[in-house]
Computed example of a mutant assay.
Amino acid sequence: METSLYLPVKDFLEQAGYAVKGEIGGCDLVGLSDSDPTIVVVCELKLSFNLELILQAVDRAAVSDEVWIAARISAKGRGREADKRYRDLCRRLGIGMLGVSDAGDVSVIVGSVTPMPRTNPKRRSRLMREHRNRRGDPALGGSTRQPVMTAYRQQALGCAAALAAGPLRVRDVTTSVPDAGKILLSNVYGWFERLERGIYGLTGAGREALIRWPQKIPDKQ
């Protein structure tokens, strides 16, 4: 699976000085630097190099300073990484190529990455905000067919954990989740119910969510 490539590539980019998290804004990996201004690096994963991987990288160029593609290196040496035309196309587009061996070693196939113009600053800002707001790195890059643990979902689970022992006033929940007011009111996942003005409880769906994604349950206010 593509997720098997995530940790080796994450380690490679972290050694290059980036804070890396997976599945941010639809990107398999997003790395932020501590420099000023911040450099945004995006990497897309596939089990083998193909045209779809390049198309994804071109799309990500609108929100990043560097774009990389990474794939498993063909054991027989017959993959696209051995095709000079494929490598030249990446160079012309400013896309870097990383090869991952079966042992998890990462090698640079195309290393000279041309800085790309950022054509979508709003989307770039959303990408950076999600990266910075997400606690830890809860999602493996390359994951499919499962909910992504976004920063919003993390905060909603924090609200659910606070309500697990019983209904609370919104201001009591905000002590652990500052955006609780908006999250409880919008109730995107159907985890909460409004019992009285300013007082919320947890639904059955909310309790099921806590079983699926266990949280530290705070002491009741």
Score class of each variant (00 low, 15 high):
Phe49His: 11
Ala70Cys: 12
Gly31Arg: 02
Asp28Phe: 04
Ile69Tyr: 08
Ala57Arg: 05
Thr38Lys: 00
Asn50Gly: 11
Ser35Tyr: 01
Ala70His: 13
Glu52Arg: 15
Leu32Trp: 09
Ile54Met: 15
Val40Gly: 03
Asp59Pro: 04
Arg60Thr: 07
Leu55Glu: 08
Pro37Cys: 04
Asp28Glu: 06
Val40His: 04
Leu53Thr: 08
Ala61Asn: 03
Leu45Asn: 11
Val40Thr: 12
Ser74Pro: 04
Leu51Met: 13
Asp34Cys: 15
Ala57Phe: 07
Arg72Asn: 00
Leu29His: 08
Asp36Asn: 12
Asp36Ser: 13
Asp28Ala: 03
Ile73Gly: 00
Ile54Ala: 12
Ile39Ala: 00
Val63Glu: 06
Asp28Gln: 05
Phe49Glu: 08
Gln56Phe: 14
Asp59Arg: 05
Phe49Trp: 13
Gln56Met: 14
Ala61His: 02
Leu47Ser: 12
Arg72Tyr: 00
Asp34Thr: 15
Asp65Gln: 04
Gln56Tyr: 15
Ile39Gln: 00
Gln56Lys: 15
Cys43Asn: 07
Leu53Cys: 12
Glu44Gly: 08
Leu55Pro: 04
Cys27Ala: 14
Gln56Leu: 14
Ala57Trp: 05
Ser33Met: 01
Leu51Thr: 14
Val63Cys: 06
Glu66Asn: 02
Leu53Phe: 11
Glu52Trp: 15
Val30Asn: 08
Gly31Asn: 05
Glu66Val: 04
Ile54His: 13
Ser48Met: 08
Ala71Lys: 14
Val58Ala: 04
Lys46Arg: 15
Arg60Trp: 07
Val41Ala: 03
Leu29Gln: 10
Lys46Phe: 11
Leu47Pro: 10
Leu53Met: 11
Val42Cys: 02
Val41Tyr: 05
Ala62Trp: 06
Ile73Asn: 00
Leu55Tyr: 10
Asn50Glu: 13
Gln56Ile: 10
Ala70Val: 11
Val42Ser: 01
Glu52Val: 14
Leu55Gly: 01
Cys27Thr: 08
Val67Gln: 02
Arg60Leu: 07
Val30Met: 09
Cys43Lys: 06
Arg72Val: 00
Glu66Tyr: 03
Asp65Met: 02
Leu47Met: 14
Cys43Phe: 09
Asp28Pro: 09
Arg60Ser: 08
Cys27Asn: 12
Ser48Tyr: 11
Leu45Arg: 11
Val40Asp: 06
Asp28Cys: 04
Ser48Trp: 10
Leu55Trp: 09
Ile54Pro: 14
Ser64Pro: 08
Asp34His: 15
Cys43Arg: 05
Val40Gln: 04
Arg72Cys: 00
Asp36Thr: 15
Glu44Phe: 08
Leu53Gln: 11
Arg72Gln: 00
Ser35Lys: 02
Ile54Gly: 12
Asp34Pro: 13
Asp36Cys: 10
Ala70Tyr: 12
Ile69Asn: 06
Val42Gln: 01
Cys43Gln: 06
Phe49Gly: 12
Trp68His: 05
Cys27His: 14
Val40Cys: 06
Pro37Gln: 03
Glu44Tyr: 09
Leu53Pro: 13
Val40Phe: 06
Leu29Tyr: 11
Ala62Tyr: 06
Cys27Glu: 11
Ile73Val: 06
Ala61Pro: 03
Cys27Phe: 13
Ile73Ser: 01
Ser48His: 12
Val40Lys: 01
Ala57Tyr: 07
Cys27Gln: 10
Ser64Arg: 05
Val67Pro: 02
Ser64Thr: 14
Ser74Trp: 04
Glu44His: 08
